[in-house]
Amino acid sequence: MFSSAAKQEIEDIRTKYPNARAALLPTIYVAQREFGWLSSEAYDAVADLLNVPKATVRGVATFYAMYKQKPMGRHLIQLCTNVSCMILGAERLVDFLKITYGVEPGGVSPDGRFSLVIMECIGACGTAPAMLVNDDFHDNLTEKKLQEILEKYT
């Protein structure tokens, strides 16, 4: 079930769209934030609140890559390994994350702290390697800098 604050937020979202289906995408985002990932309960909650069939909600959500279809860590690391980042050592950073935090691409660290998703270019080639942690942007990464940054996310 949604918290009453989330319910209010969804109701506000709903007013911006002509019908319930149109409000699905932002509502699924709220559900993802509230439930951590799109569990069966999260889908149920969205379907109940918007009065849209469950199967339709799931169909819409699975179309997009940015929705979380499995449990995720508390913080999401989106690390780029595309050409520029790769040349400047992004793959070493991937190994570093695995050794230091035990998190593999597409996986969650055993303590549930981090999830790692490998990105295809986040538009920061000039200051590569780069990553996003949740909504924060970080660039010019080295192993040391990466660790310093991540220590801030508990």
């Binding site: 199967a55 799931r58 179309f63």
Partner: peptide, 23 residues
């Protein structure tokens, strides 16, 4: 969805991975 009005199945995933599934 359109005739029966049950909306019990949907297209899941995208592109080459898409298939039809109940919830």
């Amino acid at each position: 969805e359109g005739l029966q009005g049950a909306s019990a199945i949907a297209v899941i995933n995208r592109g080459g991975h898409s298939h039809i599934e109940p919830f």
